[in-house]
């Protein structure tokens, strides 16, 4: 249902969802807060935070948007041999495998350029690739589940699925990054 173009109607449609998403995101803030000492000690780790959050959220939202379009077009079926389903899942995993090494190299390179990264290139790249691979699997699971639920409950996937998937992947991005960092630091 389209909302009218007034401040009042837009606010009525948007603000409740926005507040819920804010609470979800504050949850990931607490994870960061819990590891504040470590993050402030290693600039390269801190620098990984925005890019990991953003990339995880994007992987999820791109997949969800594509699944939702396929659902609208009637080509998506929740079956193991469905082309749009399997193709998009594979693409998400491939995107993650190709992009996270660049995230690691870029983060280490840029933090080194502007100061002391306090971590070796190897550590930063390992953290980035490991968390990226975990996050791709998580993004697939979250996007699939959300699209499936939207389909079951006949919600418009464009309205509900995208913000939910993006924000859930954001939050899990922080959790996974901080968790993986404990393995390598």
């Amino acid at each position: 249902m389209p909302t009218a173009w007034t401040v009042r109607d837009i606010t009525k449609a948007m603000l409740p969802v926005l507040c819920i998403l804010t609470i979800v995101e504050v949850g990931s803030g607490f994870v960061l807060g819990r590891f504040e000492a470590q993050l402030l000690k290693y600039p390269a780790l801190l620098a990984l935070v925005p890019v990991t959050i953003g990339t995880a959220g994007n992987l999820g939202s791109i997949l969800a948007a594509r699944l939702s379009t396929a659902l609208h077009l009637g080509t998506l079926v929740f079956a193991v041999d469905n082309e749009p389903l399997l193709g998009n899942i594979l693409a998400t995993l491939a995107l993650s495998i190709s992009i996270f090494p660049i995230v690691g190299v870029g983060t280490w390179g840029l933090t080194t350029l502007f100061g002391d990264p306090a971590l070796t290139a190897e550590t930063v790249i390992l953290i980035s690739i490991t968390s990226g691979t975990c996050l791709a699997v998580i993004a697939v699971a979250v996007a699939l589940l959300a699209t499936y639920l939207a389909y079951r409950f006949e919600l418009d996937p464009d309205d509900v699925v995208l913000p939910v998937v993006t924000n859930v992947c954001d939050v899990l991005g922080v959790v996974v990054l901080v968790g993986v960092a404990q393995l390598f630091i």
Binding site: L40, P43, A44, L46, A47, L48, V49, P50, V51, T52, I53, G54, T55, N58, L59, I62, R66, A91, L95, S98, I99, I102, V103, G106, T107, L110, T111, L113, F114, G115, P117
Partner: peptide, 23 residues
């Protein structure tokens, strides 16, 4: 998907450097 994702990674890297310098 690759172009959009690459653009957002570039943005995220720049944001990360600023964030890393915000200690």
């Amino acid at each position: 998907a690759l172009p959009a994702l690459t653009a957002s990674v570039a943005g995220g890297l720049i944001a990360g450097v600023v964030f890393g310098g915000m200690r």
